[in-house]
Nucleic acid binder design. Structure first.
Length: 217
DNA sequence: ATCCCGAGGG
DNA sequence: CCCTCTGGAT
């Protein structure tokens, strides 16, 4: 199958199959607005969404908006988010983030990648999650897993992460960018591995143009 | 004991 | 590139 024959709906179906196979890969952060999503995403580093969702309601009840969090006592914030890990860094970043929004962004979350990354505690990954899930702006972090799996599935041909990102964003339907990156990472780690692919156990073998590439487990 | 859907700093 | 920051799950 050539790349030109890969359609959006074909990709979507494949994605759904992968999602069913790796349910834990789906993003389950609860939020009502970009600000809450930003906070939840910062907290989600090295921590499950379930644990993040346990602390955010308390945090948002105590600090309603960026303005109140910006002047919060760091130790109080630390105690509220302790169970999400890296709590000292996260508390400092959360407060710093809120302060930057107040100071430079009129209290609202910016919609530009560079502006988001400039916020404390916000890197490429967090920024892309916020852009995609809160503003529906295309973008995803392409690591080696995402690149390899996307190429094997025929969804991308580019060799650089940036090239793959561009091809995937064009191919994928609105709002599926971060979810796709995540599910491809899971698939790449657990089944479609770099050295030994496990095609006989692959949930999407029949949709893969390169079944049997490389060594097989 | 080891791994994790990350970010920042050396 | 390598390290560190942390708790919780496995």
């Amino acid at each position: 199958m050539k790349i030109s024959r890969i359609t959006s709906s074909h990709v979507l179906t494949t994605l759904d199959l992968l999602q069913v196979t790796y349910p834990e890969a789906s993003c389950a952060l609860t939020h009502q607005n970009p600000w809450q999503l930003l906070v939840a995403t910062i907290l989600s580093a090295q921590c499950t969404d379930v644990r993040v969702n346990l602390v955010t309601p308390v945090l948002f009840k105590r600090f309603l908006d960026p303005a109140s969090l910006a002047v919060a006592d760091q130790v109080e914030v630390e105690n509220l988010i302790r169970s999400t890990g890296f709590f000292r860094n996260k508390a400092k970043n959360l407060i710093g983030c809120a302060a930057a929004l107040v100071r430079f962004h009129k209290n609202v979350v910016p919609q530009e990648l560079t502006a988001l990354i400039a916020l404390p505690g916000v890197g490429r990954k967090t920024a892309n999650v916020v852009l995609g899930n809160a503003f529906d702006i295309p973008g995803m972090v392409v690591d080696t897993h995402v690149g390899r799996v996307a190429r094997r599935l025929g969804w991308a041909t580019a060799r650089t992460p940036e090239g793959v990102e561009e091809q995937l964003c064009k191919l994928l339907p609105s709002g599926r960018w971060t979810q796709t990156a995540h599910v491809l990472i899971f698939h790449g780690r657990q089944c479609c591995r770099a050295q030994t692919a496990w095609c006989s156990a692959c949930p999407v073998v029949d949709r893969c143009p390169q079944v049997g590439v490389g060594r097989q487990k």
